[in-house]
Structures are given as structure tokens and as C-alpha cells.
Amino acid sequence: MSGLQLKHIGLNLRSSDELEPGEAEIGLYGFWIFLMSDAVLFALLFAIYGTQLAATAGAPGPQAEFKLGSAFVETLILLTSSLTFGLSAIAMKYDRTRAGLIVWLCVTLVLGLTFLGFEVSDFATMFRDGATPDRSGFLSAFFALVPTHGLHVTAGCIWIVVMLAQIAVYGTDARVKLDLLKLGLFWHFLDIIWIAIFSVVYLQGKLG
């Protein structure tokens, strides 16, 4: 039965994969708490965004600036990257070779970078239109909320690169596996935040 018992929320490793007993349980638990704290941060950014929606102060507003098509493509890319990360985690747990893990991680990385490319290009268009954060309270709130998510994705991409380097150096030892589990939680968390951004910022701004 012990094989079926979950020690923490999310994908569990096999017990033989642990460096010392309880390490996964404590480490992943701590990471969940960190994500909770990060979620509070995003919740507040959303709240600020909500209060600043009307504060356009004559600067370009959501109707003029948001491109639903591009935001939809970004959504698809990021959701797909969550799927590919999930595939990499399954490969890590069940495959004997490391090929699946590495390939899926690389695909995730490429998708993450593509997402960032689309996002930066969106911002560049807004800047060209004169929709810069120093123009209005609304644009300030937008450029606090969405790029904070973007910075998280950037951090996630750097983390993937670091993990690929660790796999190259150490193979998949217990530490690498545990860190990949945490990275997975982080990546999926960013997906959830993005869904909220897509709904609250883009859909509401364009259709609401």
C-alpha cells in the first residue's frame, strides 16, 4: 500500500528516489507555502488592477490597446507548455532513459521563450502607441500585473536551463528530481495565474 500513499500534493516520487526520509515531503510542502505567498502577491496585483480600471486619465485604454488574438495565442502556448512539462515529469518518474525528460524540458523551454517573445512584442506595440506606464494609473496597474507574470516565466525559463545543466552534471539524482518537482509546481502555478490574466485583463478589457 505504501506505493499508493501520497506524501505531498502533486506528483510523488518513488520512495527509492529520496536522499533521506521525509525530504520530499518537507521540501515540497515548503514550496507549496511559497506558492501560496506568491498567490497572495498576484491576488493583490489583480485587486489593484481592478481598482485602476477606470483610471485611464486620457491615455489609451484596454479597448484600444489589447490584442485578443495575440493574447489567445499566448494562452495556447503557455497551456501547451504545462502539458509538455507534465510529460517531462512523467518521463522522469517512469522512464529508464533520460531522453524523454530532456526532450520535453527543452520543448517546454522553447514554448516558454516563445510566450515571452509574443508578450514582449505586445508590450512593444503598446509602447509605440504611447501606452506607457507613466501615462495613467490604469497602464501602471497593467504594467505591474502582466510583466510580473512575465518575470516569473522568465525565472522559470532560467530555472529550466539550470535544471538541464544539473541533469548534464549529475544525471537524475534525488536532488535533481526533487527540484524538478518544485519547478513543475512553479510552472503550473504560472499557468493558473495566466488564465486569470487572460480572463480578467484581456477578455474583460476587450469584451467586457
Binding site: 507555502i33 497572495v40 485602476q52 491615455a59 506606464p133 495613467s136 494609473g137 501602471s140 496597474a141 505591474a144
Partner: peptide, 30 residues
């Protein structure tokens, strides 16, 4: 865990106002 993020955010947004000219808490422009 729950109460420090609001402070971090408050000071970060104030820093954005002061350093990059954002308008979270200024008297003008929303």
C-alpha cells in the same frame, strides 16, 4: 506568509512610482 506580500507589494509599487514614473499613488493621472 499571508501578511508580508502586501507590504512587499506596497513598497515595490511605491518604488515603481519613484523610479519609473508609474502612477499608482500619485495625485495626478489616475
Amino acid at each position: 506568509i499571508f501578511a508580508m506580500p502586501p507590504l512587499t507589494l506596497a513598497t515595490a509599487l511605491l518604488a515603481l512610482d519613484r523610479y519609473l514614473g508609474f502612477h499608482f499613488f500619485t495625485n495626478d493621472l489616475g
